[in-house]
Design a binder for these strands. Structure first.
Lengths: 257, 257
DNA sequence: TGACTTAGAGTCAGCTTGACTTTAACTGAC
DNA sequence: GTCAGTTAAAGTCAAGCTGACTCTAAGTCA
């Protein structure tokens, strides 16, 4: 490689502030995990422990720099694989965070980092791949991660809060709740996803009625047996996987009567 | 400045592909402009002509590189001021585009550029500041810009289409349509904004009924006179300006009955 | 066999929506 | 000054959706 670019770590501290911002990719990975005691499932996400300064020892979102030869989404996927072993089916861009001092501990300065954050929803089967939590990779509750541990690294607590807010916006969760579940699921399981995301109870009968009007939800002829009650029917989601900026081509069409 | 960083233009072509991606900010600026003949207003946006390769001579979104000392939104504002003279009140992040070859003409290669795109809605009074169109800055219809001119530079046509789609998503336009209008407006003017964004006619009576249930829309005691008909009442939007990731702090609150 | 539990269908009142009608208030032509 | 024309703004009505609730079906467990 040529010598014209020495990279951020060839510069000393006072020079770093003058360097162009570097680009990183991070990912918020949500999974629905059953509560330990007889409670409702809640949202969890995997975090990795920082092994370098700044914020060494604190928990952070999985992420890393963007290399020159991959698209943003590819970078997010590669990084997820490397840091957590996960390969989520649903992955979408969330937001680009670029505040001036988000890479620095308070009072110090470091090179400017702009993070493009993706979010993913994973199924229980995918989440099990990360079952072997290590000392440096572990699941945390999405709503309380970092509490009592001196907080998360960088501005990652705020990023998670923003992701939770986006998730609970109806337009979003209505189209993607299925990605938390396996290939087939009962309506009660789907309702629990909604309840965990929205943070409130839903009427089972009304929930059923509304979902019956959604053509992408297809009844199978299978039933889930083994419960101590009437076996519920299994359903399947047949809509598109919807990753990335999936928008219908838009043309202004005026209906002039 | 130190010599350790020579910048992308110190490298030759074959080396550029190996450089870390550079960061740029672009902005899609929508304004509602009255149609020439007796038609409905339509969406327009200002474009600037490329004076350098690649895509020299073609129209592009206003934009430029991100400097080290400004936040993403500040960079968008500064760049808008410099290229178009506009200072929009409403400015929000749209999406980060980072495909591998979006900075290259087909068949050639150039340095990788990641663009963080903002969008703005401007009022007619703001838009007039750009009334003096020059040879290199001009308003274009949002839905047809680039047609018959060999297309827009880069992937900017796709970016505009994505912005139009986002704009027409109900959750968004319902909260921001007022930013197209002046401080006070009639319900008919507001309805025309909705009609231009949605591309279809709305029933005036039903539109009025729905907006009366929105507390942020406040009736003034003024009326717009001068028309050849009954003078309509003027209204005012009293809600928040809503820029940047404005989300209500989110906590999972479980209602356990 | 019968109590218990959850699935899943059905009922009903209240609210919202789209289509439409009616009345109010102004201008401009005659 | 009157009337036709135009748009504002309110009202009407049927259809559809929503939330709260009841009722029946179909399994398990003691």
């Amino acid at each position: 490689m040529s010598t014209v670019f020495a990279g951020p770590f060839g510069a000393n501290v006072s020079e770093r502030a003058q360097l162009p911002p570097s680009l990183a990719i991070s990912t918020v990975i949500f999974a629905l995990k059953p509560a330990r005691a007889a409670g409702k499932p809640t949202l969890w996400l995997p975090l990795v422990r920082r092994v370098k300064e700044p914020f060494k020892g604190q928990w952070a979102l999985p992420g890393g720099p963007l290399t020159a030869v991959e698209s943003l989404e590819d970078a997010a996927r590669r990084n997820l694989r490397e840091t957590t072993g996960l390969a989520p089916e649903y992955l979408e861009q969330l937001y680009a965070f670029g505040g001036l001092d988000r890479a620095s501990r308070p009072g110090r300065s470091a090179q400017r980092v702009v993070s493009i954050v993706y979010w993913a929803l994973v199924r229980p089967t995918e989440a099990e791949l990360l079952a072997e939590e290590t000392e440096n990779v572990a699941w945390h509750r999405a709503d309380t991660a970092g509490e009592g541990e001196g907080g998360l690294a960088f501005d990652h607590r705020e990023i998670i809060d923003y992701a939770l807010w986006r998730l609970s916006n109806k337009l979003e969760y209505a189209q993607i709740a299925y990605h938390f579940l396996g290939e087939t699921f009962t309506l009660a399981e789907l309702r629990e996803v909604y309840e965990a995301v929205l943070g409130r109870q839903l009427d089972p009968a009304n929930f059923r009625r509304q979902l019956k009007s959604v053509p992408q939800i297809e009844a199978t002829d299978q039933f889930l047996e083994g419960g101590r009650h009437r076996p519920p029917r299994l359903y399947r989601y047949t809509g598109p996987a919807r990753t990335a900026p999936a928008f219908e081509p838009y043309r202004l069409t005026r209906s002039t009567p």
